[in-house]
Amino acid sequence: MKTIRASIIGFGAVGRGVAQVLLDKNDYLRSIGIDMKVIAIADSRTAVIDPHGVDLACVLSGKKETGTVGSKTISGTEIIRTMDHELVIETTPTNIETGGVGLVNMLAAFESGRDVVTSNKGPLALKYGEVIAAAKRSGSHCRFEATVGGAMPVINLACDVLAGNRVISMEGIFNGTCNYILSRMMEEQAPYEQMLAEAQELGIAEKDPSYDVEGIDTASKLVIVANSIFGMNASYKDVTVTGITRITPEALSLANADGFAIKLIGEVNDGKINVAPKLVPLSHPLSVGGTLNVFSVQTDLAGPITITGRGAGSIETASAILSDIISIYKN
């Protein structure tokens, strides 16, 4: 049995999902020789620390009742720097302008020789090269399946499962909010503003939806895909981005009459990274509805491979984080 001491930095929906999944899968993890011990959890204001292992169930219910994690005021970055542990689970919110606290945390983790598993897109979309170089320097693992496509295996599928294949191009739907709005506009023949309001009411879209609907979220994910799967050295500014705010219900009907849906498609092809609404034949595998995400790679040996799944959600994203944790420590 290998004991892995971990910190969870960021305790929003994803961080809580990770805690829940680690609780639920504790027996399974032990059965494959991994004894996960969470020694610290921090959110943006408070923290809980116990070198012998934090009681996850207790912290989860405490967060629900009081909105805080614990009584300590130590920051996530300080935990990473000062407490002895192997793995930092970085689940702070994405900041796409500066990389935010996530970038600071990841670099601090590598400086301290710790591994990182993250769902935070910002640092990787902005400074992929710098982050990976820092991990390499310290001999640390850095895995980030949860940054792209939520529960769907995207990076690990292309890099591990399809090993030996050359990935020629890839395209997909990487934003459930946009997919929901476009699908509903078509179903209800309703304008964009109305379906955005519905999505906001259901908690599918943020109060300020620009990050999703302007295509920024999709673009950030594509940068990570371009760098990790295609070995490019791209950053956010290399992506051409068009969002969905100008789409009209009439355009959706006209497209439908010709046998097409309109979807916000992200693609990496021929060294170019592009996000734009595209016409997708209704019978095509990329034509998925609701909040689903879908991802298709063209490979030289296997041909096209397409997978679809939930691109967001607390437990779904935690699933991707758990798979990263297992792939680091199972051997």
Binding site: T242, I247, A255, I262, N269, A276, P277, K278, P281, H284
Partner: peptide, 10 residues
Amino acid sequence: LLVIEPIRVN
């Protein structure tokens, strides 16, 4: 004007 073009179909 916004142009929405078809995806490449392989």
